[in-house]
Computed example of a mutant assay.
Amino acid sequence: MPKTPLQTPLHQLYDEDFVRWVEATVACLKTRDIDQLDWEGLIEEIEDLGKSARRELESRISVLLVHLLKRCYVNSPDDYRGWQLTIVEQRNALKRLLKQSPSLKTYFQNVLDEVYQDALTEASTAYPLGEFPAEYSFSRELAALLADEFWD
């Protein structure tokens, strides 16, 4: 079957209309038309997929840690339920993300201390009178972080 040239080259579509670029790229991939592919754009987008997953992991860990810090170190019983619901929500989302991309478990260990410092800053800003630990105080085991209650 002869290949039909694209009306607009894919590299041009990438900047002009991203959705059309995606559709045309998928069409080229399905027909194995590698000659018309925008290789640079395709490489960039695939790299961004991995970065996006890592950003999501960092974001969810941060939200989880902020709420664990508040639940464990802020004496505000009226807020406990809401914080615990957020903890459950983030844990469930993290479990799904790690099931889809198990290699992120290694990345988790690499960013835990940095993400904790950001979470600590956020919790300390929200509760300036709170006494939060300067160093990471929860389990470093991923399974424990995703399941254990660290409060009394």
Rank of each mutant, 00 (worst) to 15 (best):
P5H: 06
T8C: 06
L13I: 09
Y14N: 11
D17S: 10
R20G: 11
R20H: 13
V22Y: 03
V26A: 11
C28E: 10
C28Y: 07
L29D: 02
T31C: 11
R32C: 11
D35A: 15
L37T: 05
E44G: 08
E44L: 09
E45R: 07
E45Q: 11
I46H: 07
G50S: 13
S52M: 11
R54A: 07
L57Y: 00
L57E: 00
I61T: 04
L64M: 08
L69A: 01
S76I: 11
D78F: 05
D79E: 11
Y80F: 13
Y80H: 08
W83S: 02
I87G: 03
V88P: 02
E89C: 02
A93N: 09
L94R: 01
K95N: 08
L97R: 01
Q100V: 02
Q100I: 04
S101R: 14
P102D: 05
S103Q: 14
T106Q: 14
Y107M: 08
Q109A: 14
Q109W: 04
N110E: 15
E114K: 12
E114Y: 09
E114S: 14
V115Y: 02
V115P: 07
A119V: 09
L120G: 05
A123C: 10
T125S: 15
A126K: 13
Y127R: 05
Y127H: 12
L129F: 10
P133I: 05
A134E: 14
E135R: 10
E135N: 09
E135V: 09
E135T: 12
E135A: 12
Y136E: 07
S137P: 11
F138T: 00
E141T: 08
L146I: 00
L146Q: 00
A147C: 05
D148N: 05
D148C: 01
E149Y: 04
W151C: 02
W151P: 01
W151G: 00
D152N: 07
